[in-house]
């Protein structure tokens, strides 16, 4: 379990930076989940949450938690739109794509011989009560500092 977690940790960090930097051109740094917890609950921003379930050699789900303002900025840049032109559908599509790309990349880096099935990403209504810190040993959590804000990626392993 420890070896699997270490391998997943490396795959997650590589994938998150690869996707955010290559496809979304975001300057980013990883920060500790503990340091973000206070900021997260104080923030007045609504949190957009995307969930993707997966199954394969092990199953679970990945969640992307991102403040709506940051999601709108990223969407505008990604699509080459002015921020006033960005719609809720654009934001939903872009955040689902971020989560989908990160998860797909994690598994190809984790084990390119294994086949994981990814479900279609879904938006979870405002999930501000979800803690950015890991809540148990089956969770892997990464917090990213980008564009003067933060986003969180959590992987929860069921089995």
């Amino acid at each position: 379990m420890i070896a699997k977690k270490q391998k997943l940790t490396t795959a997650m960090m590589d994938s998150i930076s690869n996707v955010l930097e290559t496809m979304f051109f975001l300057p980013m740094d990883f920060i500790s989940p503990e340091s973000i917890t206070k900021l997260w609950h104080k923030s007045s921003s609504q949190i957009q949450t995307v969930k993707i379930s997966f199954s394969g050699p092990f199953s679970g789900f990945l969640m992307l938690l991102i403040p709506v303002g940051l999601a709108e900025n990223i969407t505008a840049d990604f699509m080459g739109l002015d921020q006033t032109e960005v719609t809720k559908d654009h934001v939903n599509g872009t955040t689902k794509e971020i989560a989908n790309m990160i998860l797909g990349n994690i598994f190809s880096k984790y084990d390119d011989q294994a086949v994981f099935n990814l479900e279609v990403p879904e938006i979870i209504p405002d999930a501000k009560n979800i803690s950015p810190a890991p809540e148990n040993e089956n969770e892997l959590v990464f917090c990213v500092d980008t564009l003067d804000d933060h986003l969180v990626i959590k992987m929860i392993i069921d089995s």
Binding site: G104, N105, F107, S108, K109, D112, Q113, A114, V115, F116
Partner: peptide, 9 residues
């Protein structure tokens, strides 16, 4: 176009 890079896929 895929995010999934498994050889089998």
């Amino acid at each position: 176009v895929t995010t999934e890079g498994s050889q089998q896929r």
